[in-house]
Each structure stands twice: as structure tokens, then as C-alpha cells.
Amino acid sequence: MVTGQTTVLAVDVPFPPSVEDFYLPSIVPWGEHGVWFTKITLLLWLSVAILIIFFLVAYRKPKLVPDKKQWLAESIYGFVRNNIAVDMIGKEGVKFAPYLASLFCFIFVMNLWGIIPFAQISPNSHIAFPMILAVISWVMFIYLGFSRHGIKYIKMALVPPAPWFILPILVPIEFFSNFIVRPFSLAVRLFANMFAGHMLLLVFTLGGFAMINANALLAPISLLSWLMTIALTFLDFAIIALQAYVFTVLTASYIQGSLAEGH
């Protein structure tokens, strides 16, 4: 009987978590098996809406002495503009500050859903979202390189300062590292961090239930597991902010590389 009960409870709390846990069901009453509107879709549109509304409201009546909302919005934009765009790219960086600030805020809010109660999953834990963001950065730095240097950009990006006889060895590496690894690593870094964060929280939460269901004596360890979940939520918050920052800084640094004068 005990075994039977365990099985029933184990069905309630699937453990260990798997990749299937990232594929959420449709949340509209129609199209039960469809994937056109899931929690991920909802969180994506919510992120966009929150950002648009927040910045519109914060700047609706800008004052010389800002209120809290305006202060927050100005701090975020000022941080990205002065500490990322201008510091990385230089004077020209101001032109890119709006894009970089939007990018930073968007990634941050999208990541933040991973630790918001009831949302509890970041859309960025599906690689499609980081991939599109990485493709935008990729197209942007290549476009900027060609528009700034013309056809010489190819030489600038691919030919390192080296004697001619080792260039045939070096040029393929430069190509691979500048045009293939860059977008790939941007996308995978963000995706993997969000995926792993969600997975960790799932393991510790569901693991607690799995243990308490397996044996009541394990209850203290279950409690420990749930305390770990809380601690890991704080760690996840640090990672969420850090990954948004890293993505933005690297995009800025690729732009800087494309705009820079030849080596």
C-alpha cells in the first residue's frame, strides 16, 4: 500500500525534471494542443507591454526634479548610455544608446520572469529568443562594418597583423571566431544561463517534494532543499542582471570593433 501511495504521489510531482518541463501547454481554451499561445508567448508580450508603458509613463511629464518613476527610467537609460555605450564605443556610442538600452531592459525583464512567482519561467530559456537577439547584433555589427569601411571591412575583420605565410592558417580562424562564434556564443550564453537557472529551481523544489513523499523521515532534508531554492532564487537574480549586462556589453563591443579604425 505504501508503494502504491508513493507511486500516486510521485505521479503528482514528476521528478527529475526534464526538458519537457520547458514546453508548456497552450493557455487559451481553444487549440488545446497548439503551441500558438503559451505562457511563454504571454510573458513575451507582457515584457514588451511593461517596458513600453513604463517608459511612456515615466517620461510623460518630465520634471527637472524627477519623481521615482522618472528617476528609475533615467538611471537605467543613463547607465546604459554612459557606462556601456559611451565607455565602450566612445563619442559615437550615443547613437547606439537607445538600442542598447532597449536591449538591456528587454533581456532583463524577459529574464526576470524566471523568478517572478506564478510566471517562474523565462522566455529566454527557449533558445529562439536569444537567437533572434543575437542575429540582430550580428547583422548590426556586420552592416556597420561595411557601411563604415566598405569592402575593406573584410580585410580589417579577417586579416590579422602577421607575416603573409601564416595568414592562410589564421584567416579561417578569424572568420570562424568573428562571424560564427560571436552570434552563437551570445545566444547560447543567455539561453544556457536561463535554462540552467530554471532547471536548478525545479530540481530543488521538486526534489523536496520527491523526498518527503518517499519517506517522511526525509522531511528535514526536504526543508533544506526548499531553503536552497530560496537561496538559489537570489543567485538567479544576480545571474539575470549579469546576463542582461553581458549581452549588452558584448553587443556594444562588437559595434566598437566594427567602427574602429584599422588595426
Binding site: N83, I84, P172, F176, V181, V249, L250, S253
Partner: peptide, 22 residues
């Protein structure tokens, strides 16, 4: 100022890239 994040990533991508490409 932002740390020179790029330097580390560039180094890794050259090292891995060199071995993967050749």
C-alpha cells in the same frame, strides 16, 4: 568602467576556434 569582458571571450574563441577549424 565596464570590464574588458570582450578580451576573455576573444581569447577563448580564438583558442577553441583554431582547434575546431583546423
Amino acid at each position: 568602467p565596464p570590464p574588458n569582458l570582450n578580451g576573455g571571450y576573444v581569447a577563448i574563441s580564438y583558442l577553441i576556434g583554431g582547434m575546431v577549424v583546423w
